[in-house]
């Protein structure tokens, strides 16, 4: 029983982390039809920048802010300088993002080396807390904080998309780009904002996820793969879909690891296969 509850919590928190990474990914795809395969590299870059800032200033929260800001600015730059020039050419954009991710990965390896870095989160959330209604079961406070943060981001994104003017434009853009442009909206600016927020979320997730686990070369590919699976299962372009997909994948991974470690990785792909076979547009996705 204890194991089941703890494993469920682990699955939820891992799902929360996957949601943070995948939400930016799916946001960008939904609006711009751009499969940004450099999303994993942005995750890792945010983590490294955040670590450096947190290490220098000794304020973890500053590190989180720096991780977000650095990748948001980079994302804005990428959109204005590169993707804008190849608008509507999906394949070319995708190829370019692969190229960018490879270049970024090597630059990061050169700059930060191959070591494993670990954050020191603030005292308040660095330790374990007693789970309520249980006989002395402890759970890492940080992972609870992660869960709360992901929920907050999720609500924040929902409010941003549903209650602000920019959010309204983004939703309109997802439905019909040409119509949005025709009604006098500066689509390029909407694109830039979306890409900036999406990239920033990747960097934010980098710091937050890097604190939960650790940061090292190779994490970029891991989280890119996780985001891809999450959005395929949940539905490309849908924030709710990303949340549902992330929870399913997070729980599957943790139950797999706890109850049949040898075949743990298989479950994720079984879910992926089932999703593609039965509902190719994803659980929350709409048919293109």
């Amino acid at each position: 029983m204890k194991q089941f509850i703890l494993t469920t919590l682990n699955g939820l928190t891992l799902g929360a982390l996957y949601f943070l990474v995948a939400s930016g990914f799916t946001l960008v795809f939904g609006l711009m039809r751009n499969v940004n395969l450099a999303h994993g590299a942005l995750y890792l870059l945010g983590a490294y920048v955040g670590w450096t800032v947190a290490d220098k200033t000794e304020y973890w929260l500053l590190g989180v802010a720096a991780g977000f800001a650095a990748t948001a600015v980079l994302g804005l730059g990428l959109q204005l300088l590169i993707f804008r020039r190849m608008e509507g050419q999906d394949l070319r954009q995708t190829m370019v993002t692969i190229g960018i991710s490879i270049v970024l990965a090597d630059l990061m390896l050169w700059f930060w080396g191959g070591e494993t870095y670990q954050f020191s989160p603030p005292e308040v959330i660095d330790g374990s807390l007693l789970l309520p209604f249980t006989p002395n079961w402890r759970y890492p406070s940080y992972r609870i904080a992660l869960l709360v943060a992901a929920a907050a981001i999720g609500v924040g994104l929902w409010l941003f998309l549903n209650r602000t003017k920019v959010g309204m434009m983004i939703r309109a853009g997802v439905d019909d780009r040409a119509m949005l442009a025709a009604s006098g909206v500066n689509v390029q600016r909407v694109f830039a904002i979306t890409f900036m927020v999406g990239a920033g979320l990747a960097g934010f997730a980098g710091v937050v996820g890097g604190t939960a686990l650790s940061i090292a070369p190779g994490e970029d590919v891991r989280y890119l793969l996780a985001s891809l699976i999450v959005v395929i299962v949940g539905g490309l372009g849908s924030i709710t879909g990303a949340a549902v997909g992330a929870l399913i994948i997070g729980l599957a991974e943790q139950y797999g690891l706890a109850y049949s470690p040898t075949y743990g990785a298989v479950y994720t792909f079984l879910i992926l296969v089932a999703a593609l076979a039965l509902r190719p547009q994803g659980l929350m996705g709409r048919r293109a």
């Binding site: 194991q3 703890l6 928190t13 890492p140 686990l213 650790s214 139950y255 690891l257 706890a258």
Partner: peptide, 10 residues
């Protein structure tokens, strides 16, 4: 593997 939490729970 990065997430050992479920092993630790066991």
């Amino acid at each position: 593997n990065k997430d050992f939490s479920s092993i630790i729970a066991k």
